[in-house]
């Protein structure tokens, strides 16, 4: 299959991320860029959603548990047509809908206010439980950061999802290996992530988080898996697509300058 269209969309989303964070003067480009392909795959193919009717009955839901990557969700929603693309340039400004971390009460298409790590994952579990109670075919997707899984709540929620056989829940771990203070393995080792989730009763799939074929294939496997929640461990590159940000933990939470933004936009080749 030809994935050019998805690659182009992801490039647009990455461009929106860089421009919005530059305009805001602060934000988290590294983890927004690493997640861009996964988020593109969700909003542009995998999920049953309607930008004209964000509250559509029976829709699939996506929760950005690593809420600091808000710009990737804002850019994806804008690119998908939930609101005009220029709106997200108001990121982090006083009175803006586009808060530093997503606020479900302000932005159409945001299903859960996140930012405090671990909580989006827990809420996603609750939403999947509700879908089970309602016998709804709706699916819940949740994206976690690798540093995020150091939170104890993540493991409480992991236990519950397996116990409740939430096969309508698909989690994706954006494993870029870096967190604010440095590499995961230096700050607090999270590996082996796959063995941990497997031991917790999850269906675990390892993929390259920048390869659309692998991403879509993993989603298909998750849908086919019965009786267990699925964790897709997506190996990614922090800052993906911008040469000077790639693999640099210093770009976890820093806005690019005018000059850097110009270079990034050129490299990405997207439209925003």
């Amino acid at each position: 299959m030809d994935y050019t269209q998805f690659e182009k969309t992801a490039a647009n989303i990455r461009t929106g991320i860089v421009k919005a964070i530059h305009n805001a003067g602060s934000g988290h480009p590294g983890g927004s860029l690493s997640a861009a392909d996964i988020v593109t795959a969700l909003y542009f193919k995998e999920m049953n959603i309607d930008p004209k009717n964000p509250k559509m009955e029976g829709r699939d839901k996506f929760i950005l548990s690593k809420g600091h990557a808000g710009p990737v969700q804002y850019a994806a929603l804008a690119e998908r047509g939930y609101f005009p693309k220029e709106d997200i340039l108001q990121l982090r400004k006083l009175g803006s809908k586009f808060q530093g971390h997503p606020d479900m009460k302000k932005v159409p298409g945001i299903e859960m206010s996140t930012g405090s790590l671990g909580q989006g994952f827990s809420a996603a579990g609750g939403m999947a439980m509700a879908a089970k109670v309602d016998k709804s075919p709706a699916r819940v997707y949740v994206l976690l950061g690798d540093g995020e899984i150091q939170e104890g709540l993540v493991w409480e929620a992991a236990m519950s999802a397996a116990h409740n056989k939430l096969d309508n829940l698909t989690a994706i771990l954006d494993w870029n290996g870096l967190q604010i203070d440095g590499r995961n393995e230096d700050v607090m080792t999270v590996a082996p992530v796959d063995e941990k989730f497997r031991a917790f009763g999850w269906n675990v799939i390892n993929i390259d988080g920048h390869d659309f074929e692998q991403i879509f294939d993993a989603f298909a496997q998750a849908r086919a898996c019965k009786g267990k929640p699925t964790m897709i461990i997506a190996k990614t590159i922090k800052g993906k697509g911008v040469s000077f940000m790639e693999g640099e933990y210093g770009w976890h939470g820093k806005a690019p300058s005018e000059e850097q933004t110009k270079q990034a936009v050129e490299e990405l080749g997207g439209e925003w």
Partner: peptide, 17 residues
């Protein structure tokens, strides 16, 4: 189970559904 954080985190998800 004995997991109060997830009790209330999941409760939020159920309520928002």
């Amino acid at each position: 189970g004995i997991a109060e954080q997830n009790l209330y985190g999941s409760a939020a998800g159920l309520a928002l559904s």
